[in-house]
Design a protein around this nucleic acid. Structure first.
Lengths: 171, 171
DNA sequence: GCAAAAAAATAAACTAGTTTAAGAAAAATA
DNA sequence: TATTTTTCTTAAACTAGTTTATTTTTTTGC
């Protein structure tokens, strides 16, 4: 497992980014996959009206990237904190997940995670989704500005603020 | 490729189901994966209030199943039309996608599809999502009752009916 | 530590979508 | 083809979440 790790590492390029650096941009093709050593990143879209929606946050020991590559991506990826990441091209990524099933499993896990999130957004209120986030990922609440969380929950900052005001009265 | 196909086939069990048959039920563990030869199936959840939300439709030459298995599933799968399907256990499914990358790619494609759908639901109005469905999958509009489509779009049947009334005035 | 900028809170008017209910139309079954 | 069941439509009152604008609080850079 350790030499597997070492061999795998040779496919990657290490980079450091200051926070709020855009590392992937809608319209680009043949984008990279990123594995995060340190920091916090977000993947988002910008809709017709210019509004941002966060699709995914990724932090230490997690992956982020557009699995639709090499097709032109509709997504943006930006660092939220100063971050250290390893990047890999689609070609090499493909070679690796052919060879090491653990990497194919990352894709499967991503799917399961997204499906769960999808169901929550679809069937629950923003208030319930906020509670869920607090319970399952309290660290994200600390590390993210509130307007990034609202965008992840699919509501406006104004509405999340309302939820929080109501919530703090309850204690 | 043909002997690959033949070998793969040996892992599967063929079944036929009448429409409206439930073949997977929330609460079950170690659920099967299904490959559809003929027919139309839907995967859905039932929320706290008893409301159904369709997560996925799958038809000829598509897969359906809970990729979170062997964990207890929160999903239901039901035939919408009379259907012929091949089922496979998680163990065998895993063996196969270790051996044949095409199967691992199915998971990747599923992810890409779900992410696209997620973004649409999050950032577009129900009306826009309906138009998108009509354009990209007109066949589904034909094969599904309207209330199943509304559940897929995340709105009530009443609201979809309103959208359609408004829409038909426009021509 | 101060000034400027960014983020969060509050309010009020608005809109997309829900709920409940009742009737009409279409499909399934006898 | 008549009857029953399922699906769809319409209407009206409602609610979750948006929009725009203003003020307050917090963070950042010099």
């Amino acid at each position: 497992m350790d030499e597997e790790r070492e061999e795998i590492t040779r496919f990657f390029k290490k980079s450091t980014f200051r926070k709020k650096t855009m590392i992937m941009k809608a319209g680009e093709a043949n984008t990279l996959h990123y594995y995060i050593e340190k920091g916090l990143l977000r993947m988002y879209i910008i809709d017709q009206s210019g509004k941002e929606f966060n699709i995914l946050f990724a932090r230490e020991r997690q992956w982020i990237g557009d699995l639709g590559t090499p097709a032109e991506t509709p997504y943006f990826i930006e660092t939220v904190e100063n971050s250290k990441v390893y990047s890999i091209s689609e070609e090499n990524f493909h070679i690796l997940y052919k060879r090491y099933i653990s990497l194919a499993n990352y894709i499967r896990k991503s799917y399961v995670f997204l499906q769960k999130r999808f169901v929550s957004i679809l069937s629950k209120t923003a208030e319930e989704n906020y509670e869920e986030l607090v319970n399952e990922h309290p660290d994200l609440i600390q590390r993210l500005p509130q307007y990034q969380i609202s965008s992840y929950l699919g509501v406006t900052p104004v509405f999340l603020s309302k939820i929080l005001a109501k919530r703090s009265k309850k204690d």
